[in-house]
Amino acid sequence: MNLQKIYFELLSNIGFSANEIQKNWLDLEKAYSKKSRHYHNLTHIQDMIACYEKYFDQLQFPNEVMYSIFYHDVIYSASKKDNELKSAEYAVKILPKETTLNSALVFDMICATQLHQHNKIEDINWLIDFDLKILARDWDNYKIYFEQIRKEYRIYPDFLYKPGRAKALKHFLENEFIFQTGEFRKLYEEKARVNIEKEIKLLI
């Protein structure tokens, strides 16, 4: 998958000039390639784009969803709680004045990746599920994922990190569903719950 090519085509379609596209790609690449990013990097974006391509026919606002995928973690700091809001603000701020994109929808989409709750706009539910699909990987890959998350939070000692991570994971289990679309619930809900329960046991 050529992420840069996909990005260039998207931005060209929604009203960015060639120069703007080049500059924005370099900024995006730099943000997602920081040394502190062990999971929230371009590989995560690539995985979400793969989901996007698979379920493209289900989407009403494909350009908004794809743009939101690229920018939903553009600002990411393990010590901050407003990453999604800041990412949403950034994504909307750099849009050209003449754009075919619904900027308000993009803003809502990116903010929705914080709480992962069901939304009346189905495309937001698809975006959330693309973001959380990692939870249903086979155990070895899931283990790599939570080890990468731990590295991103390495500023926190275990006695702070472990209860915090366990609390966040338990929150997923307390919800009626982890995934927001019927398709993902059918395919991945059970596996994700097994993985999360297994990780919690390692934390407590």
Rank of each mutant, 00 (worst) to 15 (best):
S17H: 04
I121N: 14
A78N: 12
F16Y: 03
S36K: 14
M1A: 15
K23G: 04
K151D: 09
E98W: 01
A50R: 15
T113G: 02
E84W: 01
L101K: 07
E98F: 02
L10S: 11
R185Q: 15
I21N: 06
R165L: 05
E152P: 09
A136M: 05
Q4W: 01
I110R: 02
L101Q: 11
E84T: 10
I6T: 15
V92P: 00
K35W: 04
Q46R: 14
Y153E: 09
A78G: 15
L85W: 06
R165D: 06
E152T: 07
K35Y: 04
R137E: 07
M1R: 14
Q180K: 03
T100I: 10
G15E: 12
C111K: 15
Y76L: 04
I128S: 08
N141D: 08
T181A: 00
L59V: 05
I69F: 00
Q4P: 00
H118M: 12
N195I: 02
Y153T: 08
I14P: 00
I124A: 05
N24W: 01
Q117N: 13
I196P: 01
Q60S: 09
I75F: 12
I200C: 04
V194I: 13
L187P: 00
L11N: 15
I144T: 15
R37P: 07
N141F: 03
F107I: 05
S79Y: 03
N141W: 06
F8L: 07
E20M: 10
Q148N: 11
L160T: 12
S87V: 10
V106H: 00
K5R: 14
D73L: 03
Q180M: 08
W25I: 09
L105F: 07
L3H: 06
I144R: 14
F130W: 02
P62T: 13
P62L: 05
H38T: 07
I134G: 04
L59Y: 00
N83W: 02
Y153A: 08
M109A: 13
F172C: 09
L11E: 14
S79Q: 11
N2M: 04
I75K: 10
Y161S: 04
K162N: 11
K170V: 03
N63I: 08
A104I: 12
T181F: 00
P62K: 10
H40M: 02
L203R: 09
D158H: 08
I110Q: 05
A168W: 06
L105I: 14
I45K: 06
I128L: 03
R37L: 10
D73T: 09
W25C: 07
A112L: 03
E20C: 08
L132D: 11
L169F: 08
V106L: 04
Y67S: 08
S68K: 06
E98T: 13
F179K: 10
H116A: 04
H40Y: 03
S87G: 03
I94V: 15
F61C: 11
D82E: 13
G164W: 07
E9G: 06
L203Q: 11
S79L: 10
C51L: 11
C111F: 10
R165Y: 04
Y153C: 07
E183K: 02
Y67T: 10
L202D: 14
K5G: 08
I69G: 02
H118N: 15
D57T: 12
Y71R: 01
E174H: 13
Q148M: 03
A18T: 12
F172Y: 15
A166L: 04
K97T: 13
H38C: 03
D73M: 07
Q4L: 03
Y156R: 09
V74A: 03
E84G: 02
